Computed example of a mutant assay.
Amino acid sequence: MHTVTEENVSATLTVAAPAAKVFAVLADPTSHAAIDGTGWVQEAVDRAPLTEAGQIFRMDMYHPNHPDGDYQMANRVQVLDPPRAIGWLPGQEKGDGHLEYGGWTWRYDLAPLGPSETEVTLTYDWSAVPQFIREYIQFPPFSPEHLSNSLHHLAKLAAPTSEA
Rank of each mutant, 00 (worst) to 15 (best):
H2C: 09
T3D: 13
T3C: 10
V4Y: 12
E7Y: 14
A11F: 05
T12S: 10
T12P: 00
L13C: 05
L13R: 13
T14D: 11
T14Q: 12
A16G: 05
A19P: 00
A19H: 00
A20E: 15
K21I: 03
A24F: 09
V25A: 09
L26C: 05
P29N: 10
S31W: 10
H32P: 10
I35Y: 03
G37V: 00
G37E: 02
T38M: 09
W40S: 14
W40C: 13
W40T: 13
W40F: 15
V41Q: 06
V41W: 09
A44Q: 01
A44P: 00
R47H: 13
A48W: 07
L50W: 03
L50V: 06
T51K: 13
T51I: 07
G54V: 04
Q55E: 05
Q55P: 01
I56D: 07
R58G: 02
M59W: 00
D60W: 04
M61L: 08
Y62F: 14
P64H: 01
N65A: 15
A74S: 11
N75D: 12
N75A: 11
V77M: 08
Q78E: 14
V79D: 01
P82S: 03
R84Q: 06
A85F: 03
I86P: 01
I86H: 05
I86R: 03
P90L: 15
P90C: 13
G91S: 12
G91D: 09
E93H: 07
K94I: 02
G97N: 12
E100M: 15
E100I: 15
Y101W: 14
G102Y: 09
G102R: 12
G103H: 06
G103E: 05
W104L: 14
W104A: 15
T105N: 04
T105D: 03
W106S: 06
W106K: 04
W106L: 11
R107Y: 03
R107W: 04
D109T: 14
L110V: 01
A111H: 12
L113W: 02
G114L: 08
G114I: 00
T118V: 02
E119Q: 15
T121Y: 10
D125Y: 04
W126R: 12
Q131R: 13
I133D: 07
R134E: 10
Q138G: 15
F142E: 11
F142A: 12
S143D: 15
S143G: 15
L147Y: 04
S148N: 15
S148R: 15
L151C: 04
H153V: 02
H153S: 09
A155R: 04
A155N: 06
A155V: 03
L157S: 00
L157F: 01
A158R: 02
S162R: 13
A164C: 10
